[in-house]
Amino acid sequence: AEKTGIVNVSSSLNVREGASTSSKVIGSLSGNTKVTIVGEEGAFYKIEYKGSHSYVAKEYIKDIKDE
Rank of each mutant, 00 (worst) to 15 (best):
E48K: 14
S20D: 09
V7L: 04
K34C: 11
T36D: 04
G27V: 02
F44H: 03
S20L: 06
I47H: 01
Y45V: 03
G18L: 11
K58A: 06
V35Q: 00
T36G: 04
N32Q: 10
I61S: 01
V38G: 01
K34Y: 10
S12I: 10
L29F: 03
A1L: 14
S28I: 11
T33D: 09
S10P: 11
Y49D: 02
K46T: 05
K50C: 12
G5K: 04
Y60P: 02
V25H: 03
A57I: 08
E17W: 05
I26F: 03
G39R: 02
G51Q: 06
Y55K: 00
D66W: 15
A57Y: 10
G31I: 09
Y45E: 00
G39I: 02
A57M: 12
R16Y: 15
D66A: 11
K34H: 09
H53P: 07
Y49N: 02
T4M: 10
L13P: 08
K3L: 10
I37D: 00
S12W: 13
G18M: 10
E2A: 15
E2N: 15
T21K: 11
L13Y: 03
G51N: 07
T36M: 09
V15H: 02
E41T: 08
T33E: 11
Y55L: 01
K3W: 15
S30T: 12
A19F: 04
G39K: 03
L29E: 01
S54G: 15
T36P: 02
S11I: 12
A19V: 05
E41H: 08
I26C: 07
K65G: 11
K34I: 14
A57V: 07
H53S: 06
N14W: 13
T33W: 05
V35R: 00
G31S: 14
Y55W: 11
K62A: 11
V9D: 06
I47M: 01
G5H: 05
F44E: 00
K24A: 11
K24Q: 09
N14A: 15
A1E: 10
E40D: 07
T36Y: 13
I37F: 00
Y55G: 00
E2T: 15
G42P: 02
S54I: 03
K24T: 08
S52G: 15
N14R: 09
E41A: 08
E67G: 12
D63A: 11
Y49V: 02
K3P: 04
S12M: 12
V25L: 06
Y49K: 00
V9Y: 07
V15R: 01
A1K: 13
N14S: 14
S30A: 14
E41D: 09
S22E: 14
G18A: 13
G39T: 03
S11V: 12
K50W: 07
K46Q: 07
K58P: 00
N32D: 09
K65A: 11
S10H: 12
R16M: 15
V15A: 03
G27D: 03
S10Y: 09
E59K: 12
V56I: 08
S11H: 14
A1N: 13
Y55V: 00
V38A: 04
I6L: 09
I47Y: 00
Y49Q: 01
K62D: 14
T4C: 12
V7I: 08
L29T: 02
K24H: 07
S52R: 12
V25M: 04
I26S: 04
V15E: 01
A57W: 08
F44Q: 01
G51A: 05
S20A: 07
H53D: 05
G42E: 06
S12G: 13
I64P: 06
E48P: 04
N8G: 09
G5I: 05
D63Y: 12
I61Q: 01
V56N: 00
V56A: 05
E67H: 13
K34Q: 10
V7Y: 03
A1T: 12
N32M: 10
S54P: 04
G42A: 06
I64T: 08
S12R: 12
E41I: 09
E40P: 01
Y60V: 04
N14E: 15
I61E: 01
K50V: 06
K58H: 02
E67C: 14
G51H: 06
G42N: 07
E48C: 14
K58D: 00
T21G: 09
K46R: 09
Y49R: 00
G18I: 06
S20E: 07
F44D: 02
K65E: 12
T36C: 11
S28A: 11
T33C: 09
S28E: 11
S23H: 08
T36H: 11
T36F: 12
Y49E: 01
S28N: 10
S12P: 09
A43E: 14
D66S: 12
I47W: 00
L29Q: 01
N32H: 09
K50M: 14
E2W: 15
T33V: 09
N32A: 08
K50Q: 13
L13D: 03
I64K: 06
F44V: 01
V35N: 00
S52K: 13
Y55R: 00
A1W: 14
I47P: 01
V56S: 00
K58Q: 05
I61R: 00
S10N: 11
E41C: 12
I6F: 10
Y60A: 09
S30R: 14
S52C: 08
E40K: 04
V35I: 09
S52Q: 13
R16G: 03
E17C: 08
G31Y: 13
D66M: 14
T21R: 08
R16T: 12
E59I: 12
A19T: 06
I6T: 08
S54A: 15
V9P: 08
G5C: 07
V15L: 06
K46I: 14
L13A: 14
E41V: 11
T4S: 09
K3H: 08
F44N: 02
N32P: 05
S12C: 15
E67N: 13
G27H: 02
K34P: 07
S22M: 09
T33R: 05
K46G: 01
V56L: 04
V35G: 00
D63L: 15
G5V: 05
N8K: 11
K62H: 10
I26Y: 02
K65M: 11
I37S: 00
K50N: 13
V7E: 02
K58I: 06
V35L: 05
E48L: 15
S23A: 13
G18S: 14
K46F: 04
V35A: 01
K3R: 14
I47T: 01
I6D: 02
G42D: 06
I47S: 00
D66P: 12
G51C: 07
S11R: 07
E17Q: 08
S12Y: 13
G42I: 02
I26G: 01
H53M: 08
I64M: 08
V25Y: 04
S23W: 03
Y55N: 00
Y60F: 12
E48M: 14
S10I: 13
E48I: 15
A57R: 10
V38E: 03
V7G: 03
I61W: 02
Y45C: 03
K34W: 08
E41M: 08
K62P: 03
L29R: 00
V56D: 00
V35F: 03
E2L: 15
G5P: 02
S10Q: 13
S54N: 06
T21P: 13
H53F: 13
A43P: 10
S54T: 05
I61T: 01
